[in-house]
């Protein structure tokens, strides 16, 4: 029997958490906007407690995203938060900044540590380095290709998580770039929203068919990919390689969309695990996703089949 990989999805709210668990998610990624990075939504400690209870009742896991780049000031608030979510039973923490690793080991060592430095988690040896420091999982950079991922898994001393669906961040600045631009134009936002809900996007002069979502929050400015990754068709390659966790990024998507995506990947994973030999991808699985897919955002393999140069 093949080990069953985990199906993880980000959640934006309590309601969405319930819907995603119903749809078949094994794990939810939530968090607090102060410490998280590009979270789908903000969870108070009260909501965190409710999600943990809901998930644990079904044998599912809850992870907290603490992927922010910490400032000195945030370090004052970090230990209390880490201790609190540890006591609530949060199963693991995603981190990029070593300050988070240090704090979790001190305040809530029972929580697992998942190393996620986003675009810079690019090789097995560095993942194993963080493993020796206490991490149990690496979240692989989305800029790696399929060969790099599959050759990496057997060399890892920690679990591997791969994002298989949704958008990715492609640029992050501490600067308020949208506000700066509007001020430069002489039309500052004057407090109007420049956040996720505003629906702002950029189009590069030579690429007018691609829309890159852009938004500001307390961490600065975020620019997101113009396409959504969708690995469903080749998920079996990653399952065969032994990837332990598949992530669906639900940021800037409706609950209905995320639910449909979770259901579809759930079906694929269950069928594969039940019979790896007899498994085959069915084109009609894509239909449900395509109906809800923003027609202006292509579904693509991301960097899975790309060769990059430098």
């Amino acid at each position: 029997m093949t080990n069953k990989p985990e199906l993880l999805v980000t959640a934006a709210s309590l309601e969405e958490s319930a819907a995603l668990l119903d749809a078949g998610a094994d794990a939810l990624l939530i968090g607090d906007d102060r410490f998280g990075m590009r979270l789908a939504g903000h969870f108070s400690l009260e909501d965190t407690a409710a999600v943990v209870e809901m998930a644990h009742a079904r044998g599912c896991k809850v992870y907290a995203g603490l992927g922010g780049l910490m400032s000195n000031r945030l370090l004052d608030e970090l230990p209390a938060y880490v201790k609190a979510i540890g006591e609530l039973g949060v199963d693991g923490v995603e981190f990029g900044d070593p300050a988070v690793l240090t704090t979790v080991k001190k305040e809530a060592p029972v929580m697992n540590l998942h190393w996620n430095a986003e675009m810079t988690s690019t090789n097995y040896a560095t993942a194993n380095y963080w493993g020796r420091k206490g991490a149990t999982r690496v979240v692989l950079a989305r800029e790696l290709n399929m060969d790099e991922m599959t050759e990496m898994v057997p060399l890892l001393e920690v679990e591997a998580q791969v994002q298989v669906h949704g958008m990715t961040n492609i640029y992050h600045s501490k600067r308020k770039l949208v506000e700066s631009y509007m001020s430069h134009q002489g039309r500052p936002s004057e407090g109007g929203s420049l956040g996720k809900e505003r629906g702002l996007f950029l189009i590069e002069a030579e690429r007018d068919d691609q829309k890159f979502p852009i938004y500001e929050d307390e961490n600065g400015t975020h620019i997101m990919s113009s396409e959504d990754i969708c690995i469903l068709e080749d998920l079996h390659i990653l399952m065969a390689a032994g990837v332990q966790s598949f992530k669906i990024e639900g940021l800037l998507k409706s609950t209905a969309y995320n639910v449909e995506v979770v259901k579809t990947y759930r079906k694929a994973i269950d069928l594969y695990v039940a019979d790896p030999e007899g498994y085959s991808f069915q084109e009609d699985w894509m239909e449900a996703i395509r109906t809800l897919q923003d027609p202006e955002r292509e579904l693509s393999f991301g960097f899975f089949y790309k060769e990059q140069v430098y």
């Binding site: 949208v178 631009y181 505003r198 629906g199 702002l200 996007f201 950029l202 189009i203 590069e204 002069a205 829309k211 890159f212 852009i214």
Partner: peptide
């Protein structure tokens, strides 16, 4: 590079 800003 140069970009144009829009809202949905």
């Amino acid at each position: 590079w140069k970009y144009d800003l829009f809202e949905d």
